[in-house]
Each structure stands twice: as C-alpha cells, then as structure tokens.
C-alpha cells in the first residue's frame, strides 16, 4: 500500500502533463489558424482597373478634393468621377506614364466607363447621405473636421488622398462586400449615441426624445 501511495502521485502528474500538452498545442494551433491564417482566405484582393495616383493630381496637379468629390445640386454625391470628367484634362495624354496612355486609349477614346472597385459598397437596403455628413454639418461641433476635412472622410474611407496608387480592396469571397463595408454598429456609434446631439431646454420642454434628435430612426439609414 505504502509503495503504491508513493508511486501514484508521480505517475499521475506525469500522465496529466502528457495528456494536457497536446490540447494546449492544439488550442494554440487552432487560434493561429483561426485568427491569422483563415481570415485572409475569406477575402480576395481586387486591384483597381487603372492605377490612379492621388499624389500626381493633388500635389503636382494642384487639384482640390472637391474638384472630383462633391455634392451635386440634387443632393446626391459625386464619389468617383466618370470618364467624361477625367477627359476634361486627359482628352490627350498629358504625360509619359504608360498607364495614362492606356487609360486614354482604352477609356477616353472609346468613352467607356472605368469599373472602379469601390471600397465601401453597402447593401441595397442601406441609405447613406453624404450631404448630411458634410464637413459643415459635422464640423459645427467637431472643429477638427473643419481644419482637416480629410479626417472626416477617413472616418469611413481609406486614406487614399496622399497615395500614389490605390490600395487593393479586400473582397469577401462569399458575400461580395469589402472588408471596409460599414457595419451597422459603426453607424450607431453616432446615431445611437443619445448624447450625440445635446438637448436644449426648449427640446426638453417639448418632450423630444434624444433618440429622435439623434436620428436613430430605422429609415434614416435603411430604405
């Protein structure tokens, strides 16, 4: 009996360690696969059909952001300009860049539209208004956006304003949406934040609910 008692603890701890070790290794392995190796497999990388350099246009060409990205008179937003807009300058090649030559030949000469890859395609039941999220509107309370409007754009969009070539879009192989497509919680960071608009005394007298003030009604963002 005594012999068994002295023997068993040693044997037990030895088998325990041997049993647990593979599970620990397996867990770590699964985490590595699940967190680092598998997610990129979900996304395909999609490059823009034409290499576009913001640096050339903004710094060398002296163009303003609003020359291409602006609110139209009807309230809609001009996100990516069409070939006609590009042709205002690029009717003929302006430089030696072979990519520009290709653009002029393939698109400007034929009038074909470039199928630019959009980084933020939203589902068709989502309504987003650029006019409502303008620098003027947001900047009235957040002065940093007035000073640097790009900061406001970059809250949702990749900061390509200073890039020489557009980054590849990560397109989900199953859903077709990109990794940058806005999720509902991102909209709700402001829309569902009851303190986003502070209520005035006048509002409170009228029993206005903060939720109404902050425009978190479903159809504010859905259509």
């Amino acid at each position: 009996m005594e012999e068994k008692n002295t023997m068993n603890p040693g044997v037990k701890s030895c088998t325990c360690g041997a049993l647990v070790a593979p599970f620990v290794v397996g867990l770590i392995g699964a985490l590595i696969v699940g967190w680092w190796l598998f997610p990129p497999l979900l996304y395909s990388k999609k490059l823009q059909p034409v290499r576009f350099s913001h640096v050339v246009h903004v710094e060398d060409g002296g163009m303003a952001c609003s020359d291409c990205h602006f609110n139209r008179e009807d309230g809609s937003f001009s996100g990516i300009p069409n070939t006609g807009k590009c042709a205002e300058c690029h009717a003929e090649p302006m430089g030696e860049d072979p990519e520009e030559l290709r653009f002029v030949e393939e698109y400007v000469a034929t009038g074909k539209q470039v199928e630019w890859v959009r980084y933020q395609v939203q589902p068709d039941n989502v309504f987003f208004s650029h006019a409502a999220h303008s620098v003027e509107a947001c900047g009235s309370c957040h002065p940093e956006f007035e000073e640097n409007p790009r900061e406001l754009c970059n809250k949702c969009h990749p900061d390509v304003g200073g890039s020489d070539s557009a980054p590849a879009a990560q397109v989900n192989r199953i859903t077709g949406y990109t990794s940058m497509t806005m999720k509902m919680w991102q909209c709700e960071r402001c829309h569902a934040n009851e303190n986003h608009f502070e209520l005035t005394e006048e509002d409170e007298a009228k029993h206005i609910k903060p939720v109404t003030r902050a425009n978190n009604g479903c159809q504010v963002c859905h259509k």
């Binding site: 609110n71 309230g75 006019a131 159809q219």
Partner: peptide
C-alpha cells in the same frame, strides 16, 4: 428602394426615399 424577398411584410412608406432626397437637396 430595396427589393423585398419572400417571407417578409411590406407596406407604403410615403415614398420615404423621396423625403431623404429632398432633405439632401435642401442641405446642399
């Protein structure tokens, strides 16, 4: 206006999208 799939209920929304567009036009 989004298209509705099988299995959901739908109804008139007073052309809500036109309101959103009108508001955007006013903002601009």
């Amino acid at each position: 206006v989004s298209v509705r799939p099988r299995g959901v209920v739908e109804k008139c929304h007073f052309c809500h999208h036109r309101w959103m567009q009108a508001k955007d036009k006013a903002r601009v």
